[in-house]
Computed example of a mutant assay.
Amino acid sequence: MFYKETHPNDEIILNTLSELVPKDHLLRKIDKSIDFNFIYEITSPYYSHTNGRNSLDPVVLFKLVFLKDIYGIKSMRETIKRVETDVAFRWFLNLPFSKPTPHYSTFSQNYIRRFQGTSVFEDIFNTIVHQAISHHLISGTALFTDSTHIKANANKNKFRNAVIEVVQERKRDLENEINAEREAIGKKPFHYTDKTISKTIKESTTDKESGYYHRDNKEKGFMYLDHRSVDGKHNFIVDCFMAQVRLHLDFCINSVIIFIMYPKFSMQIFCLKINAFINFLLMYR
């Protein structure tokens, strides 16, 4: 028999947020594995405890960023729009439908007025990584490292030519090996010195910290390098380093080796200077 539903959106539903979120939802698994309450202790020094109106819960503030990144949402404005209608998002944020969503500019204003220039983001990142290690989600036995270019907010046609002095790179391991061989046969070691050369670069007049990137068949412009190291067990990002395009991957990744501090691990590195990196790894094996 033909039937047409009328006004189904007017139905009154008596359910809790928890009942509406599927038991196997990704956010349930994240909430079970990661305790975000540590954020209160990290952010507490940056809030007033004696006067002023109540702020947005710091855990909610940083969970918004977490949701934005894990679901690949391009902006905080779009993230807030998703929170308005997504039951799982509201459950994860402990934000019932009876409460309004925060304004999309709340995070940016908190960053500008409270957290800019602090170690809050790095502390939160490191704590979550350590929690993942304690839950055996990170093994530390295989780390994969690479970098990608991120566009700077700078016009590629607005720049000035700057002359900088750089020290020409030396192969110190090779120099030491040569001198060791010479001393072994009774000859005097060579005396190597740093050689400084002048280099002309394009410097953005908008963002001086960015670097000009140019390679064949690649987009040219002012960019940054986003270096990331991923643990091979469950693809957790264990280290993130933003740098100028002039810095090489082998320079930027040293921090992750010291950070993990496992007795044995292997690393696959997409890097031209692999020999120097192998020697560095042997120092920390």
Rank of each mutant, 00 (worst) to 15 (best):
V230K: 03
I112G: 12
G186F: 06
P102H: 14
L93K: 04
E5R: 12
K74H: 11
D57Y: 01
L272A: 13
K63S: 04
Y71H: 10
K4E: 09
K273I: 03
D57Q: 00
V256Q: 15
S198Q: 13
F251P: 07
G140R: 03
N94A: 10
E203D: 06
S98H: 10
I13T: 12
L249H: 11
Y104H: 11
V238K: 08
K63Q: 07
D35F: 01
L56M: 04
N279V: 02
T127H: 10
F66I: 01
D239P: 09
A88V: 05
V256C: 13
T127M: 08
I197Y: 07
V120I: 09
F270D: 15
I30T: 01
I73W: 07
E5Q: 14
L247G: 08
L281D: 02
P189Y: 00
H130K: 12
K264A: 12
S147T: 02
M223R: 07
Y46K: 01
G211Q: 09
S139R: 09
F97K: 03
S44G: 04
L225Y: 15
Y47E: 05
K23F: 00
N51F: 07
F62L: 03
N153G: 11
N110V: 05
Q244E: 14
Q244K: 13
L143E: 08
S134E: 15
Q109N: 15
G72K: 04
E78N: 11
N179W: 05
T118M: 00
K208G: 05
E78H: 14
I80F: 00
F190I: 07
H130C: 14
T206N: 10
E84H: 06
P102K: 06
P22V: 03
M267I: 01
I260L: 13
K188W: 03
S266H: 10
I260P: 00
Y71P: 06
